[in-house]
Design a binder for these strands. Structure first.
Length: 271
DNA sequence: ACGAAGCCCTGCAAGC
DNA sequence: TGCTTGCAGGGCTTCG
């Protein structure tokens, strides 16, 4: 679930329920995530208010007390609010009491997610300091991509998934944006023209915006235990559509592996 | 500096 | 039915 649009959707959904509320307690059932959940987390945040929730790349930053709780959903994570009293699921590894009404739970079967405490400036944190530009920010455009890609030999799909270049683009939206832009995902990043990067940047942006508008794929229902599948899946034109007709030409969606990740594209109209 | 591969986990679907 | 295999929306780390 968690690429930029899903993380953004999560943050927007949580804010009205969580901001201004006091963290009453923390339960860590499984501290072995991507990195160990800090043992002192509970005493650091218990009794403090959540002042704000922000997103940077695919990370969420909860401003609590004197610092921030940094959360990444990894491959299989989701954050959901349950009403207090509802029993946790088998993969609800970390849980925050929010006020006296809610439980905020990190559910993450594969445990690639992250829950860390950041004491200082989050922008200086080692996980955040080298991150690239936000694709929905003003500075993200074809000129930026073109300049950053010169002499790069990686496939353009890997290039736009590189979080040091542009953040938030994961395996699904990389295929989608390249499909919309008519750019072959295997093409070397360094030989693509500025004009084509202009179109690609627009397509990355519009794909993200459409997905956010569709509500992402997580956290549709706060009070129920499981989340609904989300609407954007219906709008995918390339990802997961192997063998189906291309929506933009007479071709057929094919699949290949780039950088170890499955990739969907149309050989005919993506050059 | 860059690029490719390994690795961290569990769940699920497909194939035998 | 039950086992094995491969694959899954991420990204840090290591190696060449």
């Amino acid at each position: 679930m968690p690429e930029l649009p899903e993380v953004e959707t999560t943050v927007r959904a949580l804010r009205p329920h969580v901001c201004g509320q006091t963290v009453s307690d923390i339960v860590v059932r499984q501290p072995k995530l991507r990195w160990p959940v800090p043992g002192e987390l509970a005493e650091l945040v218990r009794g403090s208010k959540v002042a704000n929730i922000e997103r940077r790349a695919k990370y969420m930053l909860f401003a609590v007390g004197s610092g921030h709780v940094l959360i990444h959903l990894g491959m299989s994570g989701s954050l959901r609010l349950s009403v207090a009293g509802e029993p946790p699921g088998p993969h609800d590894h970390v849980e925050f009491g929010i006020g006296d009404k809610w439980r905020l739970r990190l559910r993450d079967p594969r445990r690639f997610g992250t829950v860390l405490w950041v004491a200082g400036d989050p922008g200086e944190h080692r996980l955040l300091r080298d991150l690239g530009i936000e694709p929905l920010s003003g500075g993200f455009d074809g000129t930026y991509l073109h300049r950053a890609s010169r002499s790069r030999k990686v496939a353009v799909k890997n290039f736009i998934m590189d979080q040091r270049i542009v953040v938030g683009v994961g395996n699904i939206y990389a295929s989608e944006a390249l499909f919309q832009a008519g750019v072959n995902p295997k093409r070397r990043a360094g030989i693509i023209s500025a004009k084509r990067y202009g179109r690609l940047a627009e397509c990355v942006r519009s794909t993200m915006e459409s997905a956010i508008a569709a509500g992402g794929t997580t956290l549709r229902d706060f009070t129920s235990g499981d989340s609904s599948p989300g609407y954007f899946k219906q709008e995918l034109q390339a990802y997961g559509r192997e063998g189906e007709p291309c929506e933009r030409c007479a071709g057929v969606i094919e699949t290949c592996v780039i950088g170890g990740r499955s990739t969907y594209y149309c050989k005919l109209c993506q050059r």
